[in-house]
C-alpha cells in the first residue's frame, strides 16, 4: 500500500513538474486539447464499461438525460439528480 500511495503521488507530482514543463515547451498547443480528450474518454468508459466489457444498461439512458440537461444549461446539481433519478427509476422498473 505504501508503494501504491507513493506511486500515485509520484505520478501526480511528475505531471505538475517535469512532464508538465516538457509538454508545455514541446507540445504547447496540445495541452488545451487534453481536457476534451481525457474527459470524453472518461465519460464513455464510465458510461459503457462494466468489468472490462461494453454494456448497454439503464446508466446509458441516465447519462443521456444528464447530457440533455447540460445542453439545456441546467445547473450541475440538476444534471446529476436527473441522471441518477432516471437510472435508478429504470432499474426499479425492470
Amino acid at each position: 500500500m505504501i508503494v501504491l500511495a507513493a506511486g500515485s503521488y509520484g505520478l501526480k507530482v511528475l505531471g505538475v513538474t517535469t512532464l508538465g514543463s516538457v509538454v508545455e515547451r514541446r507540445l504547447g498547443p496540445l495541452v488545451s486539447l487534453l481536457p476534451a480528450v481525457l474527459f470524453s474518454a472518461l465519460i464513455v468508459v464510465m458510461t459503457f464499461e462494466t468489468a472490462g466489457e461494453l454494456v448497454l444498461d439503464a446508466r446509458v439512458v441516465g447519462v443521456g438525460v444528464g447530457a440533455l440537461a447540460v445542453w439545456r444549461k441546467a445547473p450541475l446539481l440538476v444534471v446529476v439528480l436527473a441522471a441518477m433519478t432516471v437510472t435508478a427509476g429504470l432499474r426499479l422498473l425492470s
Binding site: I43, M46, G62, V79, V80, M84, A88
Partner: peptide, 15 residues
C-alpha cells in the same frame, strides 16, 4: 441509486 450515472453526467457538464 443510479450513482454510476452521476459521474459520467458530471463530466458531460464539464466537457
Amino acid at each position: 441509486w443510479g450513482l454510476d450515472a452521476a459521474f459520467p453526467a458530471i463530466f458531460v457538464a464539464l466537457l
